[in-house]
Every structure is written in C-alpha cells, then in structure tokens.
Amino acid sequence: MGAFRGSMSYTRFFVRGELPTDVPPAEDGTPRTFRDRFVDAIRLRAFRPLDPNEDVDFRAGWCAPEQPFDTDLAHEKIFFGDYLNLGFRVDRWRIPAPLFKASFRDAERRFLAEHGRDKLSRAQKEELTAVVTATLRKKVVPAMKVIDLSWQLSAGIVRFFHQSPKQHELLLEVFEKTFDLELVQDGAYVAALEGELPAPVLEGMTELEPTRLVEAVR
C-alpha cells in the first residue's frame, strides 16, 4: 500500500518555505543545487540500526525507497524527475511481555539471593528493569516499519503513505530537521487554502456551524 505498488493510502502534507536557492558551490567550484544540499542532509539523517547497548527505544531515519537496508543514499536512488522519493524507516525494540516478566523475575530472584534481601527498592527495580531490557535487546531483532514518502517538489506536496497520527508526528520531526522546511497536514481547511479558493470562501469556512439535518425537518 505504497507509492510504487498496490493500492495507495496516504496523507498529504504541504511544504512551507522555499526550496533553497543559495547553495554554495563544491570545493572544486562545481555549481550545486538544492538537490545536492538535500542529498547531503538526507545522508546525515539516514537510518542507523538500533544498538542494544544504546538507551533508546526506537530510531527513525531515511532509506532508499523500497530498499530498507540501503541507507547509502545518492541522487539516482531518490530523485525521480520532479519527485524526491524516500523510505522512512522506523525500528523499535519490542520485547514480548511474557519474556520480559519471566526474565525480570529470574533476575530479581538472583539479586535478592545475592544481597540477602526480601524485596527490591524502587531504585533497584528501575535499575534491574534497565539491565534486563538491555540483556533481552541483545537477543531479539527490532521490529521494522518502512513507509514510502514521495515529495512532488514543484508543487510542494509530500505524500506520506501512512495515516497514523503517531507516524505523522515522527515524520514531521525528521523531515523538518532534515530539510529545514515545515510541513502542514492536509485537511478540510488546508485543502481549501492550498486549492486557491477565493478569500471570501476561506473566511466564510471558519465562521460556519455544523448543518442541522434533523431539527430543520421538525
């Protein structure tokens, strides 16, 4: 259900801000455009796999479209004419609850036996949770999600092929950090604004009350 195959479910976002025009040339004097700058920025925020030794629950970053393991991003992989296409990869640690509970109880028993205690303090519980979590993260594979993103550059429209508000929130953060441009989500008012409707319609929209379809009959 993405940009390249199958049915398409997406949310439109509109880009706020201009595509960069003042891109300095390369060291050898070769002129550069916003596309070169974007490739540099995307590579900086390319996806990096989760490390079980890091204290993070998830990580999001860019990958090649339809290629979640390809994070060596270059012009020819992401620019399709007027479109910039990317994969938005999010990996998250998911430790099955029964596994965690069993491992924690086991670790708790050993700790209490070693230290001659009856129960854990709150601080000890938190510390043990962190230790057990880190241990289990070395045994499980993170859950991976990859979402297509297609940016129609001349129109300033980004189509993000997922409709979950949580994913949108994550996208906004990563997109804005990557491109230094804001995104505004499509909706009833924004669609009218972007559709160049006359000002009286835009003004009138926000002063409307919902139509009463039932009371009017009575």
């Binding site: 509109f14 880009v15 706020r16 801000g17 201009e18 595509l19 129609q152 550059l153 001349s154 129109a155 300033g156 429209i157 441009l181 804001e182 505004v184 909706g187 009833a188 008012y189 924004v190 009218a192 604004l193 972007e194 160049e196 929209m205 926000t206 002063e207 409307l208 919902p210």
Partner: peptide, 28 residues
Amino acid sequence: TKTAAEAGEAAEPMGPSLVDRIEASRFL
C-alpha cells in the same frame, strides 16, 4: 498545482490563527 514558494506566500504563517481555522473547519 503551485510551488511551495507560492504556497508559502499565499498561506498564513503557522501559529494559533491557522490552527484555530483548521480546528473550526474540521466538521466540513
């Protein structure tokens, strides 16, 4: 369609005003 630059110029800046308009129009 129009460019991002044109969209940016035509649209209001982000802030409570645009958010209020978005919320007020949701039922449409």
